[in-house]
């Protein structure tokens, strides 16, 4: 394959990775920014999104597009509800202590993963894409659905940006992020903000899971990779900075696509991890993070 089309395919693949990664990592970044909680179970929320999308597709009659649209609403809501419950039952009782919550979310990771294994089973199951549309370029074919994933992620991210900057809920979240105590003295119910943020972050991960499942199949172990990549993105972008997270997701996604294709996927992971180490050494607050 000539270099031009080769690069084009690499960039398209990279954009899909970046799009899904940006959604998942924004959830992680939001939870850390507002609550100072490192949510190790984040990848499992992503996996739950995919598995619920499968369940909706399996049990809902009618065309695949309709089931998919339903899953886009149902999965994030169910996962957000689960996350809200986890917040109320676990994180709140630990007073959001940073170390205790890491251990607690590791526990949550295993509970969700093993519960899914028990209920849903160990098999990978495909979910039909909402539409079958393939683009045939002169050099290779490409799935139209993958382009839709990019578009959908851009729309969701724009929505997220609007919520954070244009709505009262976003204002309250930002206020809590800047100074919890002052926010509380201004009458903000910080407990509710925390619960809402944790649920919202989990919902974003679930949404990413729903978008990816027609490409990748639902599987109980699928939460590991996005968790690692989300952490890489969030650390490079700057913990708590949504702008940094989106830029880092684009950077990591595209470089992953290009390096994977020109060299090898393993090298892409090595370089991403090396980059994290470099950022931690030379700019611990991340590229866009505020100085601690």
């Amino acid at each position: 394959m000539a270099f031009g089309p080769f690069l084009l395919l690499a960039l398209m693949e990279g954009m899909v990775t970046a799009a899904v990664l940006a959604l998942a990592a924004c959830g992680l970044s939001l939870v850390f920014g507002v609550m100072r909680v490192v949510n190790v179970a984040h990848g499992e929320f992503y996996m739950l999104g995919a598995v619920i999308a499968w369940a909706v597709a399996a049990f809902m009659p009618g065309p695949p597009a309709l089931a998919f649209a339903a899953a886009l609403v149902i999965a994030p809501l169910l996962v957000a509800a689960l996350a809200a419950a986890a917040d109320a039952l676990i994180l709140k009782r630990l007073n959001y202590d940073p170390e205790a919550t890491i251990v607690a979310t590791i526990g949550l990771l295993y509970m969700i993963q093993q519960a899914t294994l028990s209920i849903y089973g160990p098999n990978a199951t495909p979910v039909t894409a909402p539409f079958e549309w393939r683009i045939q370029l002169p050099w290779f074919g490409y799935s139209g659905y993958k382009l839709f994933v990019i578009l959908a992620a851009v729309l969701v991210l724009l929505g997220l940006w609007a919520i954070m900057t244009r709505t009262r809920a976003g204002l309250i979240m930002r206020a809590t992020q800047v100074d919890r105590t002052t926010a509380q003295s201004f009458g903000i119910n910080v407990d509710r903000v925390y619960m809402g943020t944790f649920a919202f972050g989990a919902g974003l991960a679930a949404l990413a899971g729903v978008l990816i499942v027609p490409i990748q199949q639902a599987h109980y172990l699928m939460g590991g990779d996005p968790l690692l990549l989300s952490f890489i993105v969030v650390i490079i972008g700057g913990l708590g900075s949504l702008r940094g997270t989106v830029i880092a997701a684009l950077f990591i996604g595209l470089s992953d696509g290009v390096i994977s294709m020109m060299f090898s996927p393993t090298l892409a992971k090595i370089i991403a991890t090396l980059l994290v180490a470099m950022v931690l050494v030379f700019r611990p607050q991340g590229l866009f993070g505020a100085k601690a």
Binding site: N123, A124, P126, R134, Q136, P138, W139, F140, G141, Y142, S143, I215, Q216, Q217, H219, L221
Partner: peptide, 18 residues
């Protein structure tokens, strides 16, 4: 592995009708 179906599907997309 669990992703064999994805593998063959993506192979089909890649070659498409070319």
């Amino acid at each position: 592995g669990p992703a064999v179906l994805t593998f063959v599907k993506e192979l089909g997309e890649f070659y498409g009708s070319g």
